[in-house]
Design a protein around this nucleic acid. Structure first.
Lengths: 154, 154
DNA sequence: TAAATTCCTAGTAAGGCAGTAGGAGATGAA
DNA sequence: TTCATCTCCTACTGCCTTACTAGGAATTTA
């Protein structure tokens, strides 16, 4: 159960762009300096994000990246899927990379993984870059209420 | 976002033991044959599970493994933690392996990861081996109702 | 004594992750 | 026109983890 640095850096980059690209596009170097991420690595991530249609870019002096859509229309789940691949904990319950398992008939685990996946999606697919870009003091509540009723310890 | 084969095999082994250890303990070879898992690999997993106090073992002919507790008192989350380590998607929100992050103050992501973690825990910490060991036809519903109100597509 | 079983340690092949490296080509400012 | 600043593109690399394999020692029962 892990999120890679790609998703972490990618989301941070998008947060930064959402916050700062009003006047001019934001360069990879600027984001890199702000979040302490290696520039060259970030370039690759932003390239992937560009190919996926999340950001657009302008080359040359004064160039950089901008979101193609309002930040409120980009979900964290979408970004994680682009950069990390499948979100489901197991491919036998993945929508995007489904691979059947020989034991599905009598495998209680499938149900477990399916529920886990739904639980994850209920969070990441309902949290947008706009939610994340809000100052932490406003507690980054998602725009749509998520489906957890209460927090559980541990 | 992935669950390793260790957790998968470990949970399957426990399910098998819960179902079949009434009369005599269950051997690794037996489980291995039932679930198509390499014996030697399974031995290692069961050893870890034994050290963690989930199963007890008996050496020699007719030996094998038994649960130390009723299956209804062993949660999937506990097993995954033992075999895979941290469940939280990022260590900045982990209870068991917390590592602070330099950007926590203004990092909307922390909230996202925290919510994701809670969502995962609300499933895996409320699903027991007893739930999983029930025949799939009974749909492996957890003993306590989980906190998702409805299923979401995608 | 033989067969079955857990226990213990070591090794290993492949793949993914997290970058580093080195430019080529575009663009705007001086 | 030159120069600094950008993105774009491809290749490479070191390290770690995963998913095993391998070989036996010790224990127990028939």
């Amino acid at each position: 159960m892990n999120v890679s640095t790609k998703s972490e850096y990618g989301l941070r980059a998008l947060i930064y762009i959402a916050r700062h690209s009003d006047v001019h596009p934001v360069s990879a170097r600027e984001i890199s300096a702000a979040w302490h991420v290696p520039v060259k690595y970030l370039e690759q991530i932003l390239k992937t994000l560009k190919e996926a249609g999340i950001v657009e870019s302008r080359v040359g002096l004064g160039g950089g990246y901008r979101l193609t859509r309002p930040a409120s229309l980009i979900t964290a789940g979408e970004v994680i899927r682009i950069l990390d691949g499948r979100i489901a904990p197991f491919s036998c319950v993945s929508e995007t990379e489904y691979v059947p398992c020989e034991f599905e008939i009598d495998c209680g685990l499938k149900t477990l993984w399916a529920r886990t996946r739904q639980a994850i999606l209920s969070v990441v697919d309902h949290t947008t870059i706009a939610d994340l870009a809000r100052p932490a003091s406003e507690s980054a509540a998602p725009s749509q209420p998520i489906l957890l009723k209460k927090q559980i310890g541990r």
